[in-house]
Every structure is written in C-alpha cells, then in structure tokens.
Amino acid sequence: MRSKHITSVAAATTIGEALERVNAALEASPVYFGHGTDNPWDEAVQLVLWCAGLPADSDDRVLGLPLTAAQSARAAELLQRRIQDRVPLPYLTGEAWFAGLRWRCDTRAIIPRSPIAELLRAGYQPWYQGPGPARVLDLCCGGGCIGLATAWYLPDAEVDLIDLDADALALAAVNARELGVEGRVRILQSDLFTAVQGERYDIIVTNPPYVDVTDLAAMPAEYAHEPALALGSGADGLDLTRRILAQAAGHLQPHGLLVLEVGNSWEALEEAFPQLPFTWVEFAHGGHGVCVLTAAELRESRPAAGL
C-alpha cells in the first residue's frame, strides 16, 4: 500500500516539487542512510535527478524544470521500494558515485563507499614514499571501485584486482570497460594472494570484509541486500585481515605501502596486534578505520606480532 507521501510524489510536476516530497517521505520513514548519502535530502536529490535523466551534479536552476507523468511515477515507484523493501538507492538506480566517478552497481558487489577514495585521489600521498607507483593491487576488490579509480587517477600504474567472488569480478570487468582502463587492469579470481605468488607491488590497498558478529547482527535492513561474503569476517571481524597481514610483506616492494580498511573493527585490530605500528589516516571528508603500514614496518614487526 502506498503512503500519502509516495502518492504525492507521483503527482509532482516539477523537479523542485518532487524533491520536497521525496525528502518528506524519506524523513518520515525508517530507512537508513549509509550507501552513498547520509541524509534524506541528498538521497532525494539523487533519486529525483536520476528519474529525470539529469546529471547528478545539477544545480538549483533545475528546480523549476517540469517532470513528465512517467518520470514522477518512476520516482514514486523507486521511493516505495526504497522505503518498503529497504533497498539501498544505488541498487535501484544501478549506479553509484565514488571518488568522483560513476560506477555500475548491482547486488553482485557491495555499494562503493570507502573513505579510501580520498587517499587514491591524492595518489596515496603523503603515505606512499616510493617512486611513481608502477604496480598496485586491490585485494578483496568486490566491484572494483578502489582499484579501478586508482588506475584512473594513476594513469601510469598497472593495477591488479583480486577477489574470491566471480560475480563481483564480472561487475568489476564491466566497470573497467566503462571507465576505459581495462588495458592497464588485470582481474583475477583468487583466495587472497594465491594467484600472484612471487609478485610484488608498490601499493597494496584492501577493503576486506571486516564486520564483527555483533555489528553484523545489528546492521540496518539495507545491508541485507548486499553480499554477505563481503561484510562479515569471523567473530571479531578480523579473520581475513589476519591472513592479509601475515602475507602482505612478501608481496610488497621494499618501498611499498599497505593500505588497509577495517572500519569499526579498528580497536579490535590494535588489541590483536599491539606490536604493529598502525598509522590511522584522518580524512578531511569523513570516514575512519583506515590504516597504513610500510613494507619495512611489516617486515620488522612480523616476528613480534606472531605473523
């Protein structure tokens, strides 16, 4: 059954009217914002502009533009699914924005949202101290947004994408073609480093599954639409991270850098490995739980850390 808010969206005749009505409906609903937006207004903007076929960065000059009956009906349909079924908006529109780039998005992979976007846009500076990175590995790449955006912003780098999930890698291949970087990208199905034995990288960047069992059980309904394989990783969320830390040094150049995201599990990581000198990145645009370790730090600390 449609609420009065959703019915009003179907009757909107301008972009401005639709925005106000979608925003009101989202504000009155139990939806969770965490898949590209963090508030109802920004989500309303994305939904309405997509339905109207307008650029995502349109300004206030579009507010008075007319909406066709079909466009208003489409907005109401998406809004109903967003509220009733708690489907994240990027899965409804089939697109997401990450690191200033547009991505194909569907349930084969989690929705792009890592704060690592800020790092890769800066060429991993000031943390990476080696020569211009020639080889980068995106480990546990999912739909490929981190590694592919890295290829975009580092046009001289060759980038490998690795994931265990063949479906996620198929989506990554689509994104590589659409971004036009497929000539510098290698996509490999692998259990972590298995497929790249003996190979070394200037930068390894990884956003592995890291949600612990407590957080996993309490996650909003929207997350149930994402692949479970990409979220949870054992009781403390660190099962995969432990394996990555044990193996990463052997795949980094002497000047190399590991960039690792563990989100809310960062305290558990510090507690599990007090001997590792994690440097936690502070982001200008929000986000947390991303650390960096140099190859030297990893190699020197591994024996004390039991890795």
Rank of each mutant, 00 (worst) to 15 (best):
V48P: 00
A122I: 04
G34T: 03
G256I: 11
T241R: 06
A304Q: 13
D236C: 09
L26D: 01
T7N: 11
L171T: 04
A224T: 15
P131H: 04
E77C: 01
L78E: 10
R21C: 07
T37W: 00
F98Y: 14
V205W: 04
Q247A: 15
C105I: 02
A10F: 06
V181H: 04
G256V: 07
I83P: 01
Q80G: 07
D160A: 12
L192C: 03
L179I: 06
P254T: 00
I146A: 05
A52S: 13
V290E: 04
R113S: 09
A134G: 14
Q125T: 10
A117H: 03
N23F: 00
Y32F: 15
G198K: 08
S190Q: 07
L171M: 03
P274F: 04
A96F: 02
A235K: 13
E95C: 06
G142L: 10
H288Q: 14
R200C: 08
S233Q: 11
G147D: 03
G286L: 03
G36K: 05
A170P: 00
R200M: 03
C145D: 14
S265P: 00
L92H: 08
S58N: 03
I83F: 03
L231H: 06
D38R: 09
V290I: 00
R82H: 08
E43Y: 01
A249M: 06
E17T: 08
G232K: 07
V290Y: 02
P220M: 01
G263H: 09
D59H: 13
T206W: 01
A18K: 06
A235L: 14
D42Y: 00
P277T: 02
N23M: 04
D106F: 04
L164S: 15
H255D: 10
D156I: 00
L101N: 13
P112Y: 02
E282M: 09
F273T: 10
L257S: 09
V281C: 07
L154F: 09
S3N: 05
T14R: 01
V262C: 05
L78A: 06
L101Y: 12
A170I: 02
L137Q: 11
V62D: 03
R302F: 13
P112F: 02
R135S: 12
K4N: 14
D160R: 10
A134S: 13
R135T: 11
V45I: 08
G34L: 02
P208I: 02
Q189S: 04
G183P: 02
Q80Y: 08
L120Q: 12
A28P: 01
A248Y: 05
W266S: 15
V22E: 06
S29Q: 07
L120W: 10
E27N: 12
S8C: 07
A134R: 15
P155A: 12
L169M: 11
T214E: 15
G130T: 09
L258A: 10
P115D: 10
L65E: 15
Y223V: 10
A76T: 12
G287H: 11
W41D: 00
T68N: 06
V262M: 07
P254Y: 01
G263A: 07
K4I: 13
A151N: 10
L120R: 11
D85V: 03
V159E: 02
G147K: 07
D239A: 15
D38N: 12
A248P: 03
A221I: 01
K4S: 15
L216W: 12
W280N: 12
P115L: 09
A166E: 15
K4D: 15
W127G: 07
C291L: 08
